[in-house]
Write a protein that binds this DNA or RNA. Structure first.
Lengths: 140, 140
DNA sequence: TCGGACAATGTTATGATATAACATTTAAAA
DNA sequence: TTTTAAATGTTATATCATAACATTGTCCGA
């Protein structure tokens, strides 16, 4: 689970730079997308590993989520939280919406426990079209 | 959605070989795992693309599922089906359990629709320990 | 303040996953 | 049989991620 007590002020320069990049993007970016950003190069980061290390930390702090089906990373707009997050991924514009799964998580994890499975983590990713893109498609 | 009317007899030699490999493994394999299997080399497949193409087809037919968080592929033990599948991934032994999500899918997709999101596909992956491994851990 | 411990960083190289492009063959249908 | 679509073969390359090891920075207790 995320370390909800994390103090954002304690982030290192690299971590701050990567977090700011994801925040500014407003959508998931791959590690190499981040690496390519001018602000990141200006911060002196120039190797993939530098980005991945910052991302690892930010994920551990619950400030960033990894989107498995995109191999990408997105800023968590909800602040650190302890319950599982679900993502709605728009296949048109590439943006994601984060949804909380308090109730679903119990349902899903309950299903798992029924089978004797001890659940550590729940990941939900849904693809489709976001409100904006769905609207555009309907009225072309 | 999966083509439930798919006829397994119509699978090509490559597709049959890959499907048999995943079936035999009983757990998720990466494309390169599959490529490395003697039976696959004997079938004449020797390039990654050959494997990926067979996998693409098998996935489209609903005979194989991709596990995003493992970059791996697993045989679907339930036969082709039309509803979303969830996976319980054991971090000890690497095996997966597939669970059906009839009810959860509605719940999740409903949440999405509440936000104006048009859902095409739902993916659920849970990590933890399977009954066997959880048992071993509890009684060491 | 010093010094030890630990986290973070820098650097280079490489491993692992996935697809592009284009020629050829096979299978199915008209 | 012709013609059409799908599958395959082959080579090269793109994309995502980590290993290994040296160095630096930070924090806290003695």
């Amino acid at each position: 689970m995320a370390d909800v007590d994390a103090d954002p002020k304690k982030l290192t320069r690299n971590q701050q730079a990567v977090l700011a990049a994801l925040k500014g993007a407003g959508r998931p970016l791959t590690a190499y997308d981040v690496l390519g950003l001018p602000a990141i190069r200006k911060a002196g980061m120039k190797a993939p590993l530098t980005i991945y290390r910052a991302l690892d930390k930010l994920i551990a702090l619950g400030l960033v989520h990894r989107i498995e089906s995109l191999n990408a990373f997105v800023h968590c707009g909800h602040g650190p939280h302890d319950h599982a997050a679900g993502f709605l991924i728009c296949t048109d514009c590439g943006r994601t919406l984060e949804v909380h799964l308090e109730s679903c998580e119990n349902h899903l994890a309950g299903r798992a426990r029924d089978q004797g499975f001890a659940v550590d983590d729940v990941r939900v990713e849904m693809t489709g079209r976001c409100p904006d893109c769905a609207g555009r498609a309907a009225v072309p």
